[in-house]
Amino acid sequence: MINIRNLVRINQQAQSNKKTDNGNKKLQIPPQLLVGGLLVLTILSMVLWSEHWSHFPYDQLRVGPRLSPPSKIHWFGTDGFGRDVWSRLVIGSRYTLGMAFTASLISMLPGTFLGLIAGYRGGWLDRILSRFIDLLLSLPGLLLAIILIARLGPSMLTTAIALGVTGIPAFYRVIRTETITLSMAPFVEASTLAGARTFRILFRHICPHLYPDLIVLGSLRIGTFMLAGSGLSFIGLGAQSPTPEWGVLLSEGKQFMNTAWWLWVFPAAAIMLAVFSFNLFGDGLRDWVDERSR
């Protein structure tokens, strides 16, 4: 009797386990997203509380001996002026990330707004806007950013603006397509019938459905913009020398390539890790969102 009872219980348990397993699967966060999210959070905390992460004032000369290799006091060594590389990297995250965030916002806001209008209204407005956006894509890669920088003169803000402009089409296209699909949904029809204004329909009813797309696109864009922004700073078309932006640090480190490896390896690794984190996060989020909407 006991045996049978046990069997039944085990069976029930197994079944209920199965159920929770299935139930969990929908909510379970994939490891990629989890790792990416944690990394992104770490980086963000570095940006927000740089002072607590760094050990020395980033711009103070001679906090240690010149060009000393990594040690317990100076984790990432010191540079040619005796400044602490770790502290410079930590503070530099503000500039690199800040540039990438600004650029993302600059491409996200107009891209989303125009995409919403074009997708919802359609017709001639859509055609004109889409042609205009195609125009932004007529110059390959960074070329548009480069001529904007050429005109405005290299600085961190200019680079962010220039990069942001090149990112507008990506947001526009995704948002426009999504809006076209969404504007045919019954709930939009219902609120139109209820007499809601276009503005209200767009921002109260359609926009919330676009948030996942915006977050995914945004975080992937931040990765791209970090690469491009530090690259431009590296060749001198972005942030300028005393600023501890990562691309600038890398180009400063280049001068000591033979003697002090820590001056260029750590900035390069920082850029790579940060870009990797945002890409991992964005990609994981995209898969997760796709999975859930299925």
Binding site: Q32, L227, I235, F276
Partner: peptide
């Protein structure tokens, strides 16, 4: 494969070039 290719996409060309 997915993490590895993600890693390579994130490599800054200028860092790689320096290396």
């Amino acid at each position: 494969v997915s993490t590895g290719s993600m890693f390579w996409i994130s490599v800054p060309v200028y860092g790689l070039a320096l290396f």
